[in-house]
Amino acid sequence: MTEIHASNHAHDEEHGDHGHHDPHLAHHFETPAQQFDSGKLGMWLFLATEVLFFGGLFVLYCILRYNHPEIFSYASNYLDTVMGGVNTCVLILSSLTMALAVRFAQINKPKWMVICLVLTLLGAVGFLVIKYFEYTHKIHDHLVWGSTFYVPTSVEEAEKLGGGENPVVTTEPAAVAADFVDPSDSEQELIPDSLMQKPATSVSQIKPAQMAPGGIASMAEGEPVVEPPYSSGANHLEDADMPPNTHLFFGIYYCMTGLHGVHVLIGMALIVWLIVRGLRGHFSHKYYTPVDLGGLYWHIVDLIWIFLFPMFYLIH
């Protein structure tokens, strides 16, 4: 990325004696137009690789959704459509300000260009803040990936898992164990540390009765129904309709939105770099290649989110 831009200045250090008057023209190009076209073609090739990079995840999504449509229509309800929708709008607006920044560079209004870039950066920050709230909320509700998500669906299974022989549970054991126990519960003191380390054991801390309505029905008469050890509203653990392997939805959700988030971070770094250069007066209508290419990158980030939003949030 940056190398594409940086290469335009290869001559500054090394080949300053070639007699070019345009300080932005590298020695191996004949004209600024040729250099601009090369940069642009290179950027489009890079964008194509980005499409294919995400493309792999789109394929994964299609296969999983094809094989398990029930998981997607069920688990999609746990995503907050309002937050997702607001995020989409934020990203679209930041894309718009980015396009305007390029336009202002072209018509030689560097001050307006910088203002638009700052607005774009604010949009990116806003996007990530909303994303942060979404993520923390889900993690709090154990709506996470893989076997960490897994909840037993019957008493027998819960007991079997409680034996600590579940070989698949590996992720963040301490965090899971801590969350399953109500801090206000005085019995917390009684749980040995060794159990806290084992996620499988921590599942057994929940009485089977709370696992599912079916679990209550299967309970022996006379046993007291214990209150859930936590209270976070309509929790998925209590839902009998939850299809098996619902964790797959959240696995692919975190993969795709996470990778997208990483791209947002890279884009933000790029925009900061453009703002700094813009403030130093590096850009004008004669030379604005980095703004243009950075803009293209930012639009592809937007473009991918345009697909992610309906794919995860808007499943009927």
């Binding site: 493309g55 994964l60 893989g146 696995g251």
Partner: peptide
């Protein structure tokens, strides 16, 4: 073609470390 390899290997790393089960 190569970006698809990149995402495949990334998924392999995620599968091996975070066990997402895909």
């Amino acid at each position: 073609a190569t970006p698809v390899l990149a995402i495949t290997l990334l998924l392999l790393i995620i599968e091996r470390t975070l066990n997402i089960g895909v």
